[in-house]
Every structure is written in structure tokens, then in C-alpha cells.
Amino acid sequence: MVKFPSQEWIEQFKEKLNQNAAYEDAAKTWEGDFIFLVEAEGALPSSVALYMDLFHGKCRDAKMLSSPEEKSAAYTYQGPYGNWRKLINKEIDPIQGMMTGKFKLKGNMMKIMRYTRAAKELINTASTIPTEFP
């Protein structure tokens, strides 16, 4: 079990994503990095930012940032800790999550709407990580 959010968790995510052929197919033309911002809530006393550089169906880099301001990215997907927990447990759909205000996305909307299949595979992969929540 790995704790979410953590450096260990994001490294496992990278490893599993790079083994996922369905993600590679869905994101084969995707170019753009992400910051996943887990906002402080309940058991998570301060916000945590996870960074992923996603390029042509692979993750080239993944790390936990020392602060949300450490790095900028093409997209930021953010929401409170409790909603991240539901997302990883597949209790929230990543797209419906945005449409109901549980998550917010900053970045080029039209571009990302063409990669919804990749977004689903991304979450499917995250849900396969044996995750421990604080």
C-alpha cells in the first residue's frame, strides 16, 4: 500500500501508466503536462501538488512538488482531498466531477475535450494502485 498523496504514489502511477497499452493508444498524440492539486481538507492538513509530464502516450516525468507554486503546467486539475479519494476509488467520474464543481480544470478546454478516452484511462490506472488514504 502506498500513501496518497506522496512521491511514492506518483512514482507508482507513472510506472503503471507506462505499462497501460490502452492509455498509450488513447493518448498517442497528447502533448501536455499536468499538475494535480490535492487541496487541504480533513486528514490532509496542507495542499499537495503532483506533477506529471505526459507525452505521446507515456509519462516522461512524475514527482511531488515542494509547493503548488514550484512549477507551472499546461493543465491544472484540482479539487479537495475528499473528492480525490472518491475519484481514485472510482466513485466520481473525472469529467462529471468537473461538471458538478467537485473538480476544476485550468488549461485549453477544447484540446482536452478531444482526449476524454485518455482521461478515463488515466483514472482507471490510478485506481489500480494499492492506495492508503491518511
Binding site: A22, A26, D93, Y115, T116, R117, K120, E121, N124
Partner: peptide
């Protein structure tokens, strides 16, 4: 493949 119509399809097609 890039259609938003696949968002909620019951299966994710390759």
C-alpha cells in the same frame, strides 16, 4: 477516437 461522445460510452473503445 477524439469525439467527446465516447466520454460516457459503456465501454472504452480502442
Amino acid at each position: 477516437d477524439s469525439s467527446t461522445c465516447v466520454i460516457s460510452n459503456a465501454r472504452v473503445p480502442s
